[in-house]
Design a protein around this nucleic acid. Sequence first.
DNA 1: TCATACCCGACTATTCTTGTCAACATTAGC
DNA 2: GCTAATGTTGACAAGAATAGTCGGGTATGA
Lengths: 141, 141
Amino acid sequence: MKLSTKGKYGLYAMFYLAQHAGNGPQPLKSVAEIGVPEDYLEQLLGNLRRAGLVTTVRGAQGGYQLAKEPQAITVGDIIDATEGPLSISECLSDEGSCHRAGQCKTRRVWEYLSNSINDLLQSISLQDMLEQEQFGITKES
Amino acid sequence: MKLSTKGKYGLYAMFYLAQHAGNGPQPLKSVAEIGVPEDYLEQLLGNLRRAGLVTTVRGAQGGYQLAKEPQAITVGDIIDATEGPLSISECLSDEGSCHRAGQCKTRRVWEYLSNSINDLLQSISLQDMLEQEQFGITKES
DNA sequence: TCATACCCGACTATTCTTGTCAACATTAGC
DNA sequence: GCTAATGTTGACAAGAATAGTCGGGTATGA
């Protein structure tokens, strides 16, 4: 179980935009300095735009900027937008794939895990990241 | 971010073994009745054996059984054994892939998420699953 | 010794990931 | 209006991962 680079890059990009909020639209070239291929990043920002997390200004001097305040955007929003909704098990989305009653006892586990992880992701906002220390990290590595 | 079938099938199989604990070794054929191809399941049970979660008896009347009590085996153990350790981001395992200081602020997020999810997975045992209702599910779907 | 069962490694088809590329649409500024 | 800067879109492709499949072992109870 791991995140693909889409979610990771998406968070990088959104964090970059959060850091530059208020400075006008940031062109793709600038955002790509976080270390992501431009052509690939473009796709991800497209998804983030369609999800309503960033707005764009086309043409010269255009670029990308956050569509909302940093505290109104969560890590979960970003991962949803870039990776698609996380589904621990397709049992949860596809009804009918649990063809045996015995197996369905495990379904409740997926349900519980899925809900818990979603809550977790929704509990961290870009603002929290800007402020650091805000989301429960206490132990030193 | 999703689990592969390995983790899912692994949990099915382990839950099956938990349900039949005390009835002697369960042959692969029986376990496969949960709806997993025998040849594939064999690989997964091999991983579970190497992880010390099941023991096997070879030869006629042989089969697989839990290596420990159901309360001593967690969903996290099973997923680790079948899917390999979950790594949200390779930033956490591979040092040096965070090549920019700016990006590394997001690293703490992965760290936090990773720890939280691991704790979550470790908090559910097979015994909890046998007893149902035991691992925090309260809301009706 | 034979049937039952686990053990192991190689092989493969399909899908997903991670980009790359080319053509197009929009707009600011001269 | 022209041009350069910029976002938009969809097609394409190499490589890796997933989800099995297969063929031959080895151990053991009857």
